[in-house]
Nucleic acid binder design. Structure first.
Ligand SMILES: [Mn+2]
Ligand SMILES: [Mn+2]
Ligand SMILES: [Mn+2]
Ligand SMILES: [Mn+2]
Lengths: 217, 217
DNA sequence: ATATATTTTTAGTCTTGTCTAAATATTAAT
DNA sequence: ATTAATATTTAGACAAGACTAAAAATATAT
């Protein structure tokens, strides 16, 4: 059985290792978790002892198959709860992450499977991120950042890379939501900004915004 | 902010003190929480430091107004989550307590208020226990144990005193559920058993069962 | 009233998860 | 190839929450 803290580390390593087994540095984890590097070293050792992680001193850490499965189980819970909060309790997408950070650690297989059914077995959470099924499998919608889309092309906003409260509130303010059709009108090389067009209006977005919006073509 | 452990102690003291401010013994709490008396003494001191409890050495502990409010907030969460699990996720009433023991510690006022609305502001949980509102107020349905009901009288099963899994499963097996009309047919002084009649059948129940079934007349 | 039993508290230890400061390895720069 | 900078690990400490064993207080029984 994993502790809350262990689960948070597994999640961090999973995300930083880009889902496959890439080795992750102590400092990267420390920043993600908001802890000191020394604390990370301690925890990595514990995870390695439990055979959830592969660890060689000074060479970073990666997840074992079991570690990866556990990480995905936590992510599944996180995203199902976020979906519940938005779909059933009418939270806005920028409010749910912190609450899901708590709910993701509730231990009950049956609960999460029943929740999954109750929600209609959703495949993606309110931020467009894929929800692993109970075996850890998921398929990510093929999409690319506006940064990589040439003017003249359009697509549907399917996910946001940055799910921070600040960014989501920016999108709310500017009436941009998942599912919207967005057409890339122009690219300005000077500041790398983009002009985009939605059903309701035309607007300019910074590079910073553009790189966090993912469209499926 | 209270910790998970503090919340469990507050709840225990609240229940043992019979809701009003009655002083509770160290040993009673130890048994309820399943911890050693020495651990209880330690925690009581912490609660007293935080002004959640009144504590005089060797004379037991009682809750302050703030402690009582916090306890009721946790109980509110517990019972709302239990209601959610039964009403929305189709759990049986004997499965929900353990999961609610975890969920009751999730911290978000907004979450619990939205959950309350989503459930239609229920006044009682799946075991017939009252759900405090957000100010800690609740009204208990007036009811009495079958032990105190004379043969010939009947009432509606509104709550169970013992919410243990074993007892609830016994009731399931014998097709007794909240809302059922139960008539007391006979009392046998020898073993203090009762014969009761429901819509579907007549059966005999032990004293132990009778004292845990509460009917509203 | 005194002795005995029970309850409660204290003292000291342990585990988990964190931290700071110091030591060691690795990487980058001259 | 050294030296300097950066990253990582170790050593030692601390807080929370639990435990065991022993001491002290209270309650019970003669
Ligand atoms: Mn978390
Ligand atoms: Mn999400
Ligand atoms: Mn609890
Ligand atoms: Mn209940």
């Amino acid at each position: 059985m994993t502790t809350l803290s262990e689960e948070n580390y597994l999640k961090a390593i999973y995300h930083l290792g880009k889902q496959d087994g890439e080795a992750v540095s102590t400092n990267a984890i420390a920043e993600q978790i908001d802890a000191k590097a020394s604390s990370v070293t301690d925890m990595i050792k514990k995870l390695a002892d439990k055979e959830l992680a592969n660890y060689i001193k000074y060479q970073g850490v990666s997840l074992t198959e079991e570690g990866r499965l556990t990480a995905k189980a936590v992510i599944r819970k996180h995203r199902l709860w976020e979906t519940f909060l938005v779909e059933k309790l009418n939270f806005s997408w920028h409010e749910v992450h912190e609450i899901a950070e708590q709910l993701e650690h509730i231990k009950s297989e049956k609960l999460i499977d029943k929740l999954d059914d109750f929600l209609g077995n959703p495949t993606h959470d309110p931020h467009g991120d894929p929800i692993p099924d109970k075996y850890g499998n998921y398929t990510k919608i093929k999409s690319k950042s506006i940064l990589d889309i040439k003017p003249g092309n359009q697509g549907i906003l399917t996910s946001v890379k940055d799910s921070s409260k600040a960014f989501l509130k920016y999108l709310n303010k500017n009436k941009l939501a998942l599912g919207d059709t967005i057409k890339v009108i122009d690219f300005e090389p000077f500041d790398e900004s983009f002009t985009i067009e939605t059903k309701s209006k035309t607007m300019t977005i910074s590079k910073n915004v553009a790189e966090n919006l993912y469209l499926s073509i």
